[in-house]
Design a protein around this nucleic acid. Structure first.
Length: 575
DNA sequence: GCCGTTTTCGGCCCGACTGTTTTCAGTCG
């Protein structure tokens, strides 16, 4: 089985960490990190690219040397340079740099002076009080390390939807101290990443001090990690870390840009500034002492000769080049969505009856809602057999009879069985407006078998959409082992759409897979998989991920009118 | 290790905060 991009990226990242600790040229380590990011966000597998005869050195941040090394990893599964490095630097040392107060320099010092080779050695050295005596260390750092080593490290990331409430509560708490200024959550939250590691709050106020003091006095604060003039960091009881930065109004745009990131995007922007003889920092874009831009993000981009880049695109995945050529894609917006194509009712495991779901969808301004209850195989969900599905079809007809300017579509979320066949027969499926096919079992099949299974479902002439195609549950279940390129090729050939499932625990497809689908010419649908009326609101999370995947309204099936949709869904590809 | 309408060599983003120092290195974002 060919090596996955994530594995290659992991090896490159490991190399970078060891180079840092070894004290090698920092830019060399950075080059490995950059390459790791590039590989990680590739829309296709590096292995397939190579097989198709592509030169990886054409990719940004990857030159001849790294292309060769990645080629070696793909072909042999080995990475000789990393193995050499591991002999010089114990690989366990890399883990130490994740401890608070420790970075590559101090880890190297621990290794060179105290012979520390990993967490256990460090624990002993700390217990013996030998760490505090090292140059650049001290009692303070030693105590912090002791505390950190005592509890297992759990680098948690939070689901985007889960931190929204906390973010809103904090912003309204800060308001009294802003004195007319504003506060906004920047960082990966603003870029709408599917998970966030912390929240970056940016505030403008004439009294930075008052904001900072109110911030660290917040009720939910568990620990204050840093508290300076303009910058403070706390950890909330939930474990969520919050960074606050306060700037003056005239700096707001530059600060928002800086604090939104991504880091890679910022570095690229600053390099452009340097090219132009300017300097970009969180206070503005400067020509010598003179601020030439900074009040708004648009000003800064314009002064750099770039089009405004929406936050969701700021990942240094090619957006800067397009911004320079004023050729950024127009991204899909929530307002473009004209209906939802995946929803459940109390006919299976949903909470609401047909009428309630219809009313809720119509109230959102939608033109249509597809009812896609589970099929027979999902016994826990009271999945429908052909007989009950036929009854539901009649029930939907009755509901539609009482609706105006809106239609419920007759559908199903039919299970894809282990062999790729469907859980319901063609004669009932062919009576529906839309068939969504999804995997809900046998998540751990070998890659080849899983791929064949999904491709078979894609190729079924009555299947219009594959639901949550990779099956991942964020932080709980890994995506299916799949040759995703093969799935895309099949989907493109038969015109089957892939879903961006907007349910916060799923967000499946994710941004990178969605980007790959668009590149391959595969259509997408953005659906909520709502099991209750309120969950229809999840649409915006799906739109967020679509935007991160460079998806435009034209790539999304459910941006079209009901009449167009009916034409598109009509099975015209029977073999 | 990458990269180039100023460069194939010599650069490579920039500042705040902490804890250690007594002017600053390291970490962090």
């Amino acid at each position: 089985m060919p090596i996955q991009n994530a594995e290659i990226a992991g090896l490159l990242e490991e190399m970078a960490e060891l180079l840092d600790i070894e004290g090698a040229n920092a830019f060399r380590a950075r080059a490995y990190r950059r390459a790791a990011r590039t590989i990680e966000s590739l829309p296709q597998s590096a292995a397939n690219l190579l097989e198709a005869g592509n030169d990886l050195a054409d990719l940004p941040g990857i030159g001849k040397d790294l292309a060769g090394k990645i080629g070696e990893i793909v072909r042999t599964g080995r990475f000789a340079a990393l193995e050499v490095e591991k002999r010089a630097v114990p690989a366990e040392l890399a883990a130490l740099a994740a401890l608070p107060g420790l970075g590559p320099k101090r880890v190297k010092l621990l290794h060179d002076e105290l012979g520390v080779r990993g967490p256990n050695d460090l624990r002993k050295a700390v217990a013996a009080g030998r760490v505090a005596a090292l140059r650049g260390f001290g009692r303070g750092i030693e105590d912090k390390l002791k505390a950190a080593l005592a509890k297992p490290v759990a680098p948690t990331r939070f689901k985007l939807a889960n931190v929204e409430a906390e973010a809103e509560a904090l912003l309204s708490y800060l308001k009294p101290a802003l004195a007319g200024g504003q506060a906004i959550v920047a960082g990966s939250f603003r870029r709408r990443k599917d998970t966030v590691g912390d929240l970056d709050v940016l505030a403008t106020s004439n009294s930075a001090k008052a904001v900072g003091e109110r911030f660290v006095a917040y009720d939910n604060v568990d620990k204050v990690l840093a508290h300076g003039e303009t910058r403070s960091t706390v950890v909330l009881r939930s474990g969520l870390q919050i960074d606050l930065r306060v700037v003056a109004n005239e700096c707001f745009g530059a600060a928002l840009l800086y604090f939104t990131g991504s880091k890679a995007h910022n570095i690229a922007l600053r390099a452009i500034a340097v090219d132009k003889g300017l300097k970009l920092n969180e206070y503005g874009l400067f020509d010598g002492q003179k601020r030439v831009a900074g009040a708004t993000e648009k000003d800064v981009y314009r002064a750099l000769g770039l089009a405004y880049v929406p936050p969701e695109l700021r990942e240094d995945r090619g957006e800067i080049d397009l911004a320079r050529r004023k050729a950024l894609p127009r991204l899909v917006q929530l307002e473009d969505i004209r209906g939802d194509l995946h929803a459940h009712t109390n006919w299976s495991d949903g909470a609401a009856p047909l009428q309630a779901m219809a009313a809720a969808a119509q109230a959102k301004g939608y033109e249509y809602l597809a009812i896609t209850d589970h099929s027979l195989r999902m016994t826990v969900a009271h999945g429908l057999d052909a007989k009950r599905l036929a009854e539901q079809i009649d029930a939907i007809d009755r509901v539609n009879g009482s609706l105006e300017g809106f239609a419920l579509l007759k559908g199903v979320e039919v299970d894809i069985l282990e062999d790729g066949s469907l859980d319901l027969a063609d004669d009932i499926l062919s009576r529906l407006d839309i068939v969504v096919a999804s995997i809900h079992s046998h998540f751990d099949l070998p890659r080849d078998q899983q791929t064949r299974r999904l491709v078979r479902a894609v190729e079924h002439p009555l299947v219009a959409v594959i639901g949550h195609p990779t099956g991942r549950l964020i932080g709980e279940r890994e995506p299916l082992a799949l040759d995703f390129d093969a799935v895309l090729a099949a989907a493109r050939k038969v015109g089957c759409a892939l879903e961006i499932n907007a349910a916060p625990p799923r967000l499946d497809l994710d941004d990178v897979h969605a980007y790959a689908a668009r590149e391959a010419g595969v259509k997408l649908v953005i659906s909520t998989d709502a099991h209750a009326t309120v969950s229809l609101d999840w649409m915006r999370f799906g739109v967020d991920q679509a935007r991160r995947g460079w998806i435009g309204a034209g790539d999304v099936v459910n941006t079209v009118s009901l009449a167009d949709l009916r034409r598109r869904l009509k099975p015209s590809r029977a073999t």
